[in-house]
């Protein structure tokens, strides 16, 4: 077997992963953007998006996933998501109140409705998704560091 196959799991898992990982990502995005009109929202959406990357990491090993989403990008996205949420909250001051829903609410049950909720969901999903992935990577990589220390 070539070097590529030593990392990660067997060919079957890799093939299935290649087929499903995009669907998982899409499903996460769907949950995320429909958060204000159906069950779901920023947190579940972000978790599912993070799960697609975790799935990739489990099947292909850490290098393949970290090439797609390096650690500095993760930590940047995490901070950015939090600041974006804070910024949306602060922009509410344009209407006089913290967290005011200052964008027009639109028509109920349409995708672009509910004002800032969609944007807030986006920010939350960035924060949660990046956070979960960062936690996972930190816990996974820590054990490698530890084994390295032993040798």
């Amino acid at each position: 077997m070539s070097r590529e196959h030593e990392q990660g799991m067997s060919v079957i898992v890799k093939t299935i992963t290649r087929l499903t990982v995009g669907l998982i990502l899409l499903y996460g995005i769907y949950i995320l953007v429909h958060g204000h009109i159906s069950p779901g929202g920023g947190f579940p959406g972000g978790i599912i998006i993070a799960l697609s990357f975790i799935h990739l990491m489990l099947a292909y090993g850490k290098d393949a996933a970290l090439k797609k989403l390096p650690r500095y990008v993760t930590s940047f996205l995490e901070g950015f998501g939090a600041l974006m949420f804070l910024a949306i909250a602060l922009l509410g001051f344009s209407g006089g109140y913290f967290f005011l829903n200052f964008i027009s609410k639109g028509e109920p049950f349409k995708l672009f409705s509910a004002g800032t909720i969609l944007l807030s969901n986006l920010a939350i999903s960035l924060k949660v998704g990046a956070g979960l992935f960062a936690i996972f990577v930190a816990l996974i990589l820590f054990r490698f560091d530890d084994e390295g220390e032993e040798e």
Partner: peptide, 20 residues
């Protein structure tokens, strides 16, 4: 009264800016 949220906003904003 308009300044009250800043007790939380400033601290959290500072935290995330530092982390960025």
């Amino acid at each position: 009264a308009g300044m009250i949220p800043f007790f939380v906003v400033l601290a959290l904003g500072g935290a995330f800016l530092v982390s960025l």
